[in-house]
Design a protein around this nucleic acid. Structure first.
Length: 403
DNA sequence: CTTCCACAGGAACCAGCGGACC
DNA sequence: GGTCCGCTGGTTCCTGTGGAAG
């Protein structure tokens, strides 16, 4: 391979990928794919459907509030049920409009209302109008169209935590101000303690019906993966134990189905890239490591500069020993800031930043008394130092220091 | 048994900034 | 296009603390 020209290398890669007989349809393993069947969610489908089905008779369905941690199928179930419901309503000639909004993507009250108005077939300028005006416009338009509207607010905790529950409050009371249309709300959150953020009135109104999505168990994940794998891979390319291992690893991570599917997909991609005819257990292990590393790199990259410098200081100090402590880190950090010619933050602040790094799981910082030599935190690196370093030098300002 | 180190971490405060509203 | 407001990320000042050294 030493003498291979770029053309040869490329040809080799293209050849492997195009000739590969691994994936029949890789897309069904992507997070936004909504399957026709959702194993082990029959109960939840039934509940969501029975609440929302009132709409088919022209009644306003009760508001519904859905909890469950990430990767438990909340969004998939709601999307599946609402799309079937919409079809059925069309058949029966019921005037029903369903609007699905992810408040992580559209997080301000303005954006949410703008989306709602768009789903009624109108446009709002991206800025320039007071939010209260957008709200009353929405109300007017809705009432004029005489229909039943189901508003699904996915990841609603993002909007409420970042802004407030004002909009939610207004939406729960909107029916009092409408004469010809009705609104039902479906709220989805993966924060189980989310209701503590809500005004009691919003809480009781939104929680007319509640539904919890429990995490998947390892056997359940196995079923989900097996079913999806049938669509995704050619027959017989998965070695025995591949699905079981993916399921077991993801079950350990709080039963997150999305993670399990990611793992299976990346395992397949690794096999494909290697030109291997089969996906093996080793591919899964490699994929797992890669996911973990990528996560670390991404987290480190997104850190503010001073946190990065602290991490770099810790990395330097733990090169030849396994732990360091606050004072030592601070002194090293100070030198780094001088070298860069930027201001140095106070020790107090650094203490907080160290706590944050601890919470992110990159390092561990435990308070310990060193007797007469005072109280401090002993700091050890928890994640792969190479992955951390990769994230650090992606920042040119830090890269300058490492060279 | 007391002392006393080297910080932890709470409280109050402040500068800067982006958004709402007029 | 000015003003008010709340949030973020920082500071200063402070009190609290576990256990080796004396």
């Amino acid at each position: 391979m030493l003498t291979a020209s770029p053309d040869d290398i490329l040809e080799d890669v293209f050849e492997r990928v195009t000739k590969s007989r691994i994936f029949k349809n890789r897309d069904v393993l992507l997070p936004d794919y909504i399957p026709e069947r959702l194993p082990h969610r029959e109960q939840q489908i039934k509940k969501v459907a029975s609440v929302l089905a009132q709409a088919l008779k022209g009644y306003k369905p009760n508001n519904l509030f859905i909890y469950g941690i990430t990767g438990t199928g909340k969004t998939a179930v709601v999307k599946l049920v609402t799309s079937k419901l919409q079809q059925k309503a069309r058949q029966l000639g019921v005037r029903l409009r369903i609007s699905f909004i992810n408040t992580k993507r559209d997080d301000t009250a303005y954006r949410i209302l703008a989306k709602l108005i768009e789903s009624l077939g109108f446009k709002v300028p991206p800025t320039g109008i007071p939010t209260s005006e957008v709200y009353s416009r929405f109300k007017r338009l809705l009432d004029k169209r005489e229909l039943l509207m189901i508003i699904v607010l996915d990841e609603i905790d993002y909007h409420v935590k970042k802004h407030s529950d004002d909009l939610l409050y207004k939406l729960t009371r909107i029916n009092e101000e409408l004469s010809r249309s009705k609104v039902s709300l479906v709220g989805i959150t993966n924060d189980v303690n989310f209701t503590s953020w809500l005004d009691p009135r919003v809480k009781s109104s939104l929680g007319e019906e509640e539904l919890v999505f429990p995490p998947y168990t390892a056997p359940q994940l196995r079923d989900i993966l097996a079913e999806r794998a049938k669509l995704a891979f050619y027959e017989g390319v998965l070695e025995d134990g591949v699905i079981e291992l993916c399921a077991a690893l993801a079950a350990r991570e709080k039963g997150d189905a999305r993670k399990a599917l990611d793992l299976l997909r990346i395992s397949g991609e690794l096999a494909e890239r290697e030109g291997s005819p089969k996906v093996t257990v080793d591919h899964v292990k490699m994929a797992w490591e890669q996911i973990e590393k990528d996560k670390v790199v991404e987290v480190v990259k997104s850190l503010p500069l001073h946190s990065k410098l602290i991490l770099l200081a810790i990395l330097k100090l733990t090169k030849n020993k396994d732990s360091t402590y606050t004072g030592e880190v601070y002194r090293t950090y100070k030198e780094l800031t001088k070298e860069l010619g930027i201001e140095t933050l106070t020790l107090r602040r650094i203490g907080d930043l160290i706590s944050e790094l601890d919470m992110l799981g990159l390092i561990s910082a435990e308070v310990e008394s060193r007797g007469r030599r005072g109280l401090t935190r002993i700091i050890t690196v928890e994640s792969d130092p190479k992955a951390i370093m990769k994230g650090l030098i992606a920042d040119p300002r830090v890269g300058e220091l490492v060279r």
